[in-house]
Design a protein around this nucleic acid. Structure first.
Lengths: 131, 131
DNA sequence: CTTTATTTTGATAATGATTATCATTATTAT
DNA sequence: ATAATAATGATAATCATTATCAAAATAAAG
């Protein structure tokens, strides 16, 4: 049974609001302003829970620290090798379905039951490219 | 300047040989048989170096522990949610080029300079599906 | 509205993978 | 050979994440 908690609500809200793929530390710094005595363990517990429910996504980056993503649109990620920011690349419905379909076919070649995918591109972002 | 070392040679050889995406610990256990006094730090140093040279790939998994991949064929990965093994899905040259091309187009939508990609599928593998 | 049961929290200790340090050893250049 | 430099192995340090636990919050029952 899942009980309500203000903390969980605020954590989810913050992740859905932000578009910068925050780490737990980043969320902690932010949420202290709303709930000054919030504990960092609470954030770890809740992002983990929210991932399990499928309400947010966990992203693994080059530096090994997890980031969280509340963007519900179909999208893939791009990590800049220079500034290490993560950018969303929005997928049109059509493009998204096409990719899902291709990946489904690939999963079939090993007889696996395909559930979800994570596509991470890397290179240089627009800004860093110019330098 | 890069100096030869037996350790690096053996580490690379083992990663290229294996098809089970070993962690550093797994490599350590294996390589102790060939070089009994090898230090685990040496393995960390070298896999990191080999990734930088592009000789092997680092894979980020659900459990947060890095795995290493020496498969030079075009392929993507599939992680089983049950047994947590990672499987390679081989891409035909044609399929691979098609995907690269699509991803290139997507990277263009944010004006990024696309370098490489990592595609990780997840779900149930053939064996776990049957249970 | 109490009382009881259960979950969640915050604080903090424990864990575990990875990185840093440093004296010693191996490799390369002179 | 000798000197210069890089790599190693041992181990300490770091740091993100998880576990523990008493106290607080929430939900259910009377």
């Amino acid at each position: 049974m899942k009980k309500y908690s203000r903390q969980r609500e605020v954590i989810l809200e913050s992740i859905k609001m932000r578009r910068d793929h925050p780490t737990v530390d980043m969320l902690y710094e932010d949420l202290k302003l709303q709930i000054p005595n919030i504990g960092i363990a609470t954030i770890y517990r809740n992002v983990s829970e929210l991932c399990n429910c499928g309400q947010i996504r966990k992203i693994k980056c080059e530096d090994g620290v997890y980031r969280y993503d509340g963007n519900e649109e179909n999208h893939i990620h791009f990590e800049c090798n220079n500034c290490h920011k993560i950018f969303d690349i929005k997928l049109e419905e059509k493009e998204s379905k096409k990719i899902k379909n291709e990946l489904q076919n690939l999963a079939n070649t090993i007889n696996a039951e395909f559930d979800k995918q994570e596509i991470m591109l890397s290179g240089l972002c627009e800004k860093c490219k110019k330098q």
